[in-house]
């Protein structure tokens, strides 16, 4: 087990360097003029240009610049082209996106998994059929439609939630975007729960548990649930990684300076250091989330052993 974790972490290190290098290449290949992007429409003097070029090693060759980047990244001295400390942005963005992701995932678990269980227990009934159609519709709606719609209905029409993210109400104003994000994974979670639960309800061991004279509640709530949770938790773990990656559209619509929103802005500014830093962090989050899910898998299912 320990050796497995070490091996996975070493693989993670390789993945990390590979991914940052690829992203670095892409930023490099994109060309563009970060100094002009910084100034917008205004002209840049030759002096300013020379200073910035010097500061950010823009004239050095590709590999030298990559090494400079790595050095700054690991010493925490990485500056964006605007001169701001990159990691300062990252911290607050991570916090915001983390909160939204948490709201979304809790919403998914509470509503999606519960509805999935009910649908599986009453398979073929009105609830099952209508919820299947509804989830199909939800899966079909892109967030570019869902987010403004929710904003319009809950924020403007019914005034239940703040329309946009505000510093004054840091939690309440994150609820609606969290729910919008959660709705998207909720539909998948519900279908997965339903399928997993239904398969397990028909399993031989359920018949055994029933023939032991256990109550229906215990048979379903302990025997079936424990087995059905294995794929669901796997899905939720990966989904949490996805949600931490930030939702560019949802964060954009609600004007949230989370990971998605900041990344989008940095790409627009040709801000290489910021983009690469954000992407690198996402890589780390993915690697850790995947490792945790795999380890959790072994905890949930004793048939799985890592060595």
């Amino acid at each position: 087990m320990f050796r497995y974790i070490v091996r996975r972490l070493l693989q993670g290190v390789l993945t990390f360097f590979g991914a940052t290098f690829v992203v670095y290449c892409l930023m490099f290949a994109g060309g563009g003029d970060p100094i002009q992007a910084l100034a917008g429409e205004k002209p840049v003097t030759a002096q300013q240009r020379a200073a910035l070029t010097e500061q950010f090693h823009l004239d050095d060759n590709f590999f030298a610049r990559y090494l400079y980047f790595l050095k700054d990244f690991f010493t925490g001295n990485l500056k964006s082209y605007t001169g701001r400390d990159v990691f300062e942005n990252v911290g607050s963005a991570l916090q915001l996106t983390g909160k939204i992701a948490l709201i979304a995932i809790i919403f998914t678990i509470v509503v999606g998994v519960t509805l999935g269980i009910v649908a599986a227990l009453r398979r073929g009934g009105i609830f099952d059929t209508s919820s299947l159609i509804l989830t199909l519709v939800v899966i079909g709606i892109p967030s570019i439609v869902l987010a403004p719609l929710a904003q319009y209905l809950f924020g403007i029409q019914w005034k239940i939630f703040p329309v946009n993210y505000t510093f004054e109400k840091p939690f309440v104003s994150l609820i609606l975007p969290g729910l919008v994000l959660g709705t998207l994974s909720l539909a998948t979670a519900m279908r997965l729960t339903r399928a997993s639960f239904f398969d397990n309800l028909r399993a031989d061991y359920v018949r055994t548990a029933t023939s032991k004279g256990l109550t229906r509640f215990r048979v379903v709530g302990v025997h079936v649930l424990r087995n059905s949770l294995i794929p669901i938790i796997t899905f939720l773990g990966v989904e949490l990684g996805n949600l931490m990656g930030g939702a560019i559209i949802t964060e954009g619509v609600f004007n949230i300076p989370g990971i998605g929103g900041q990344l989008y802005k940095a790409i627009g500014l040709d801000d290489g250091p910021t983009v690469i830093t954000f992407v690198s962090l996402l890589v780390v989050i993915y690697i850790v989330a995947n490792l945790v899910v795999d380890l959790l898998y072994a905890v949930l299912d004793p048939r799985i052993r890592y060595e």
């Binding site: 061991y205 018949r207 055994t208 548990a209 025997h223 424990r226 087995n227 048939r303």
Partner: peptide, 8 residues
């Protein structure tokens, strides 16, 4: 094998 619950 299938009649016993695999996770307990």
């Amino acid at each position: 094998l299938s009649s016993l619950n695999p996770v307990f």
